[in-house]
Amino acid sequence: MKKFIRIISFVCALLIVLGAVICFGAVLQDARHDNREAHLLCGYYDTTDPHDVIFIGDCEVYEGFIPATLFEEYGITSFVRGSSQQTVWQSYHILAETLEKETPRAVVFNVLALHYGETPLEAISRMAIEDMEWSEHKLDAIKASMTDEESLLSYFLPILRYHARWSELDSDDFKHAFDKHVDITHQGYLMQTDIDPVDTSDTRKPDDLLNTALPKRAMEYLDKMTALCREKGIELILVKAPTNSVRYYWYPEWDAQIVDYAEENGLAYYSMVGKDEEIGLDWSQDTYDKGLHLNVFGAEKVTSYFGKILAENHGLTDHRDDAELSAIWEERINSYYNERGEK
């Protein structure tokens, strides 16, 4: 009898530990959910309609291109699959995941992240990846993004990563621990309505480049993206969103390499750097953080400018006459304006 009690109590203890690991992990992981940038990728899994264009990339993508504006002005259906400091290897795996679900006409990849040869910040990288649904692509994205200090196990058991946050927990963390991630974007676009103009008194100059070559690893993943799109018959378009920041200075040496790459691979490349006048950008109005990122007003101008390029140069169909699609998108556009108007 004692042997039986021993075995049963041992198994129960293991189950309690397992349950606690899962529950505490979920609660502790949830403690970062106040951060809006932790909810950028999840919205895509709920969409069922196909898209003409998929935008892939970092902050310049999810704060620079507005699918609602693109449909409203050009009838192009699109979705933004961007995340904070998204590295090229993350972009590749997110793209592979996306292309398993649908085959868009074009994929637009913002090239800023090509200057990262390794994952810049574990916390930000992890925040993005954890918003993905579990699949082989997520696993590949984790493996490609992991820093030396990380363990793969901690992605399966979040308690191993977030346990130190136990003292910061509040009741909300317990309340929403098992809630599904909430999509706070507009088809992947994260709206920013504040205005914080570029500081014109900041006369800092960008650092000199020690090595002008874009990292090999980043270029290898760009090759993979090119090959994947080619295999699926999708046009890959390279783009560089406008920049007005010393912190994210886009060096001409980098740009020249992208131009060469695009030429060698028969890809279109549009750099919007230095085209503020053409786009109509006013950095005293169109940024919410002193020129580091665009606000909604700047993003609308960039989307209008780039939408015209997509429509004219890449022959994308105008779906505004399609009643069914228009109905879906009208709802999305209304939601977009609701938030834009509210703020």
């Binding site: 203890a13 293991l14 309690i16 530990v17 606690a20 690991v21 505490f24 574990e122 200090e149 990380e150 363990s151 901690s154 308690i159 191993l160 990563r161 346990h163 130190a164 136990w166």
Partner: peptide, 15 residues
């Protein structure tokens, strides 16, 4: 079980 949970939650390990 309590020891396991205490170590996992309160332990100084990981990043």
């Amino acid at each position: 079980a309590i020891l396991c949970i205490a170590i996992l939650v309160f332990g100084s390990y990981g990043l």
